[in-house]
Design a protein around this nucleic acid. Sequence first.
RNA 1: CGGGGCGUAGCGCAGCCUGGCAGCGCACGUGCUUUGGGAGCACGAGGUCGCGGGUUCGAAUCCCGCCGCCCCGACCA
Length: 569
Amino acid sequence: MRVSTLFARTLRNDPAEAEVAAHRLLLRAAFIRKTAAGIYTTMPLGLRTTAKIERVVREEMDAAGSQELRMPIVLPAEPWRATGRYDAYGDLMFRLQDRHGREFVLGPTQEEVVAELAQHELPSYRDLPSNVYQVEWKYRDEFRPRYGLLRGREFLMKDAYSLDRDEVGMRESYQAMYDAYVKVFDRLGLDYVIVEGDPGQIGGGVNHEFMALADVGEDLFVRCENGDYLADTEAATPRPPDAAPDEEPPPLTEVDTPGAVTIELMSEQMGLPAEATMKCILFDVEGRSVAVLVPGDREVNEEKLARLHFPARVRPFEDDDFTERGFAKGFVGPQGLGSNVTIFADPAIRGRAHWATGANRPDVHVTGATFDRDFRVDRWQDLVQFREGDRCPVDGGRLEIARSIVVGHIYQLGTYYSAPLQATFQDEDGSQKPFVMGSYGIGITRIMSAAVEQNHDDAGIRWPKLLAPFEVAIIMANADASAVTDHAERIYRELTDRGIEVVLDDREERAGVKFADADLVGYPVQVVVGARGIEAGTVDLKVRSTGHRSQAPLAEAAETAVDLLTTAP
RNA sequence: CGGGGCGUAGCGCAGCCUGGCAGCGCACGUGCUUUGGGAGCACGAGGUCGCGGGUUCGAAUCCCGCCGCCCCGACCA
């Protein structure tokens, strides 16, 4: 490819809309152009890079026994109603109607389609297990698209779906995909971690997120300073504090605390630190009342609580609930609560012998509330929201928050989709059973952004050679000297003949412009052919990722470039 | 969806407060000089000042409405 004909112009200024490095550099280097908020044209350079990501993904998917197909993007709305996702996704789905008023959605993912396909193609248990995948645009009308391709409304994703006869088979399929994902992300050279994730709205149980580390990542996760624990912030279960030493607790004593409806006001009026107070937070679980006890300085992790009760729905008490069920809002304590209230307590409640908490009467609190003597606990359960500095459940080390970009997510779905869609096969005993499914996503366009976040400097992108749109750039430093042109063209041919992906910067630009653009676009190896070098009988070479510069005899330019490329990251 | 900000040439911005010829840098075209890390000089092309309405002799500028985009939050395979 000759740069003079490349459909790309680099930008000298940073576009005002771009905040993070990946977005800024992909725009400046002409890998992408914005069409609308969160919707981008993939330019020739960007297409080459995404194609390389896709190639790695396809090779590993094929090797793992998944078969590629392609499903429509425009999907009838009906199956989405059947699985409940039409409403669950809400405004996150792009919706449209055809001329007859029939409703369609633009696919955000395609479990529904696969389930229906399987119904027809895999009628017998003898057809199982099976696994299909596609690489396709996905659509989500994000509340807030941002950071270019990191959170787009249209994005390229590889999605795979496994279909199994039973749970055991599903777990085997899941493990095969897990292993394939490790190979993919290892080959792509990403710095990543694997974290057991939150089930989210896609439904179901076990799932893992493959997270590329990046300071701009939107997804937070928790890790131990000693590297032996990783978890989603919502799923993190910090080690509870040590149990309080046995001591004779003071008697339960009421204290007037007019208007002290918050922990802050309460601890102020009572002259106690927030850690010595106990929150008793009330939730409604489909008509039943649930109380959750956590130390006053901690928050309840509602996600965890919701997961414990799934599929029942959990919501915090509203004002009406307090009045209707006879609770004093702001002054609730666990003492004397009847069996109509289920009391959950975080293990941290064991970390103190007695607590200050609500007296269940307006404007009154108590001190000395002691477990077993003054209140009961129906179930001990980790329910505090993780906080930086909590201790690691494995080795007690300090837990800290790191940022990442989710580039892969795999799920054990079970029959979450197949059952409501009545996607079934006939099992050996003659009965119809729903497929036991798994689904597996990899964000192709997101990986391109994540790779830039992890591989850039002030001058531009430093592509790993596997992801670079071209492997070698030949820069003609004095384009009007015919000796330069002859040698550059010769090296260009030699590299092309060796199967190297190479660009020849033959533009009528000054050398500095070409150097700057080569650094910006991020070609792994640069070969500089100029009058100065030709006089000495040499070319200059530079490895973008390391900045390493060297020289080679004119005749050995191509060979040296190949050597450098081979050893480059 | 709540809060904040911005829409002026391809990109980055000034002008708006205090109404009076639409500007600057880069990029683009032509010519000359230059030529190994984003050249210099000269000439030139390029604008419904986001859209609609209003006020005014006169609106990029003031007022009202709408749209788009960015940031923070909520939310999120």
